[in-house]
Nucleic acid binder design. Structure first.
Lengths: 232, 232
DNA sequence: GCATGTCAAGAGCAGTGCTCTCGTTTGTTG
DNA sequence: CAACAAACGAGAGCACTGCTCTTGACATGC
């Protein structure tokens, strides 16, 4: 992320201040949401004047972009470390633990979650920097799913879907069958959909014990993916 | 919604102006998103002064709430009318058409979709007025699913999930089995999750023909719900 | 040791939500 | 019909925002 150790004292100070600004901004976002993020308020918290912040981030959106990249990496790392602690052969549990880690992170950082999986900020175009960190979780899920022995899948794919999935397969999971990849993308969609439903309050009053409900869903998805409790 | 015909000329003018403000605000939201909605800009468009708008909506958030209620009703009505045109016995198609209608509406009104299914506006608490219109689509889906003859479902529900679903069942679908209701809620979650993924750009570069991909998902969900092409 | 580039600070612009006051218009009531 | 109260539009004003520009101090590299 940072390019090793900065040489000069000035570069060092710059790197530190940049990180400090991001940290304060992250606190502000966590407290009151991305829409309310104010460069002036961040500057005030750091005891400097608003215009000085523009030396480090050319615009408010650039600050937000930095936060988005960090958020993607944070949730990606959370899922990766949690999943890494599970016995490799227990594919179902690896999937479940990864999914739970994403949900946990989202609950601990709801505003940052909204930043990356909520409505896009209007007039804000996600730069290329964000796409790489954004793929960490999907890639992790594909890794798990790819290790399963694939039972035959009766999912029939119409031509256009097959074409898209074939291309995607060649990019990220060369040995995976298309129906299986389809179910993987569906599981990924459902995972984020379910967390969003919970966080955005679309099931308040309907589901009280969302942890149990979430686990049930993830297990059912894992079952559909052919993930076994102890493969081999 | 409106309480019949207003009597006095003043009440009539008030109702009209209220509607006009909402219409202009809706245009602004459609053009540049909810976060950028400016009461002053709306007032300017209507040739009046900003403070005058406060006679009709006590705050910007109240204006947004009105738009949210309208959006829920709009998407609900879109789904209902589309679904109503399908032969009653073709349950799978009724589900598919309803799902497609939601997606179509979302594509035609992305900002309004983001308003109701995207990240909640920070510091904004959805008032009770919004919950009733918000249930229209889930209720429609439950109606369709409830008409299917239920094949036995091997989905095992742990106690807390079963408790939540039993209560929900008693409120909205008295004759439905709990596993079936579980799959219905999952389908509802997946439906919105998939539309959000498309609209918020989480699968750009991966899925090009999203119409085909969406249909495939919805059909697979319908299959899991036991919806047949021509029941009976 | 000096030119160069970086930095924080401050003023300023245009915009925002919201409040308050001021006359005016409208509807109701005695 | 007259009087009163409620509703109304207009305008000024407050505190805030993102962002730009200029100014003067400082550190860095030749």
């Amino acid at each position: 992320m940072t390019t090793s150790a900065p040489r000069t004292a000035r570069a060092r100070a710059r790197a530190e201040l940049t990180a400090e600004i991001k940290a304060v901004a992250r606190r502000h976002v966590a407290a009151s949401g991305a829409a309310d993020l104010s460069l002036r308020a961040v500057a005030r918290d750091l005891g400097m004047v608003s215009s000085a912040v523009y030396r480090y981030f050319p615009s408010r959106d650039d600050l937000l972009t930095a936060l988005i990249v960090d958020a993607y990496n944070a949730v990606g790392e959370a899922a990766e470390t949690a999943e890494a602690a599970v016995r490799r052969t227990d594919l179902l549990r690896r999937w479940l633990v990864a999914a739970r880690a994403v949900r946990s992170w989202a609950q601990d950082n709801p505003q940052e979650y909204a930043l990356i999986f909520g409505s896009p900020i209007p007039g804000y175009q996600a730069p290329q920097d964000t796409v790489d960190p954004a793929t960490r979780i999907p890639l992790l899920l594909l890794t798990i799913i790819g290790e399963a022995v694939a039972p035959p899948d009766d999912l029939v794919l119409p031509r256009p879907v097959s074409r898209d999935l074939a291309r995607l397969r060649d990019q990220v999971a060369p040995s995976m069958s298309e129906p299986r990849l389809a179910r993987a993308v569906m599981a990924w969609t459902h995972l984020i959909g379910s967390i969003s439903f919970e966080l955005f309050g679309h099931l308040v009053g309907s589901i009280d014990d969302y942890s149990a409900w979430f686990d049930l869903q993830m297990k059912e998805l894992g079952r559909g993916l052919g993930l076994t409790s102890t493969s081999r």
